[in-house]
């Protein structure tokens, strides 16, 4: 369900910062980082989401020897029994994400994520039919057991792909 151990690593922070187009030296240059207020390399504000890499059951990662719903020989490797757009079988779309920072992450931290289900609600969408929202609260604690980040995500499943007009 969640990452039991999420090691915060400098190389991973560098790759993540590059992917979001952020060339701030504090994300990759230790010597520079020492001269800043945090005094160390820190992780960008949305980095906790990359805990997915350390979640053994994360559904949006191909796993060795198992069928994958992306394309291969056919447009999808998994035959779905029912329709439903948006997520294309992959866990719906991301509707909201909230982070509360008790402190910022740095290389050497080892986090543990605890996931709690939140509310579920429905709405009739103009562009995608019935929408089913569900909330997940993830608490990230460090190696000392202290709460460092509280994350609240809201996912949505749509009845059909979102109309682009």
């Amino acid at each position: 369900m969640a990452a039991k151990k999420f090691p915060i690593e400098a190389g991973h922070i560098m790759l993540f910062a590059r992917a979001v187009g952020d060339d701030n030296q504090i994300y990759h240059d230790e010597d520079y980082a020492k001269t800043t207020e945090p005094g160390t390399i820190i992780a960008p504000p949305t980095f906790a989401i990359a805990s997915a890499q350390f979640d053994p059951d994360y559904p949006l990662r191909p796993k060795s020897g198992q069928p994958w719903f992306g394309s291969g020989k056919e447009p999808t490797g998994v035959q779905r029994s029912s329709g439903g757009g948006g997520g294309g079988g992959g866990g719906g779309l991301h509707a909201e994400q909230h982070f509360e920072y008790h402190r910022h992450l740095k290389p050497g931290d080892v986090l543990t994520a605890t996931v709690k289900p939140g509310k579920t609600w429905e709405k009739e969408g103009r562009r995608s039919g019935k929408l089913v929202f569900s909330e997940t609260i993830t608490e990230y604690r460090d190696q000392k057991g202290e709460l460092v980040i509280t994350a609240r995500g809201v996912g949505v499943r749509t009845e059909r792909p979102v109309d682009q007009n």
């Binding site: 993540f16 992917a19 719903f69 999808t76 294309g88």
Partner: peptide, 18 residues
């Protein structure tokens, strides 16, 4: 980098045809 490999973000065949 993030670990979210949902093919809807990277697999044009899946995104359009499925």
């Amino acid at each position: 980098a993030s670990g979210d490999y949902n093919p809807i973000h990277t697999d044009e065949v899946f995104a359009t045809k499925v």
